[in-house]
Nucleic acid binder design. Structure first.
Lengths: 193, 193
DNA sequence: TGTATTTACTAGACACTGTCAAGTATGAAT
DNA sequence: ATTCATACTTGACAGTGTCTAGTAAATACA
């Protein structure tokens, strides 16, 4: 015990919440449980996060920052690599990803610092698509391609994470190979049009 | 009041729950609230659904049946139409779709009749993909294409429904046109490979 | 027709939750 | 030395899911 004061309760609560989200899902996260895990009173977390939504906002902000960094780092390798980076981020940060994509847990508009990171991630994605398309492409076309690339990456990520994809497909020898395969298909569509 | 006995409490609770899921999300659904809406005691719904997860299972079963029918009806028109049908189903049945894709609300494996409908929907999707690919395609290839088509449709559906896609894209004149555009891209990838 | 059983509920209680309000100890600033 | 903000604790309240125990009516069966 007593690690609350030595280690920073805020960080401790955040880590506990992300861990719970990764194993059991965000809905299982409880103010009183994370307080218990940190060895503090049930009201202590309120001082750092305001309310339950505040915890989700903090997780989202951190998650979008990590996602933005991952996307930005991948863009020199093309859209296929970016798509792969998106999916691998989701699998490597289940707790964050699950919270980030649940708008009902906390409304990003109410947390400007979190919104900034979300925009950063989106802009990195759209920018890469428009670069591949060429700067002179129409906005509608850029929008459609952006929506398309994002859909593929996001769909595969969510289906692998919480969806029944692997269960339904039956035998998938190598998940990474599947991800690469799907990402390449998505990328080829953009180039070929 | 008194409509509980005349109209069938089960159907009434189900409709109320789906409506709440469509407007506020599945997590807001409360046993006591749906009972209150139906004008019965807080324990009445338990007789029909066992527990809260039972309501989600019933919604999932109904949703997957509707989705399977939508996919099956679209397959004569090709993979692009199937992809569109998937997305339009999600938009037209927000309440059902949100519940269906949340494995943490109820584990489909515990509800065999719901699982049957889910399998039906998946098989219709995979079948259409393999038909387009040709019957002699390798299983790995069929798996990858199935995962790919499903990812596009599912990703676009979830991003439109609860994601920030429209907000980030800014101005999207016609959502249906965007859906058609994305679906055609996905479909063309399958044919061209 | 009389009795047993199943169906479809109601009523009360328990542990748990998020959150409001109020108190306390500790450090820094004036 | 006193004010003040920080970082908590304690207590209470309404709301939740669900267990247990009832009840009133329909149905099945003898």
């Amino acid at each position: 015990m007593t690690s609350a004061k030595t280690d920073g309760l805020r960080r401790q609560v955040l880590d506990a919440a992300v861990a719970i989200a990764a194993t059991s899902g965000p809905d299982v996260i409880s103010m009183r449980e994370v307080a218990r895990l940190a060895g503090v009173s049930h009201q202590a977390p309120y001082h750092h996060f305001g309310d339950r939504a505040g915890i989700f906002a903090a997780i989202s902000e951190e998650g979008f920052r990590l996602l933005a960094e991952a996307i930005e780092a991948s863009t020199t390798l093309g859209t296929a690599a970016m798509c792969e980076a998106y999916v691998h981020f989701a699998l490597a940060h289940k707790g964050h990803f699950r919270v980030m994509m649940r708008n009902d847990l906390c409304s990003l508009e109410d947390y400007p610092t979190a919104l900034i990171q979300a925009d950063r991630a989106f802009n990195a994605l759209r920018n890469e698509v428009t670069v591949i398309l060429g700067e002179d492409s129409h906005e509608d076309d850029a929008n459609a391609h952006t929506a398309y690339m994002w859909s593929v990456a996001h769909g595969l990520a969510t289906l692998l994470l919480d969806g029944p994809l692997l269960k339904k497909l039956g035998s998938v020898a190598d998940i990474n190979a599947l991800i690469t395969n799907v990402a390449r298909k998505a990328s080829s569509t953009i180039i070929h049009l």
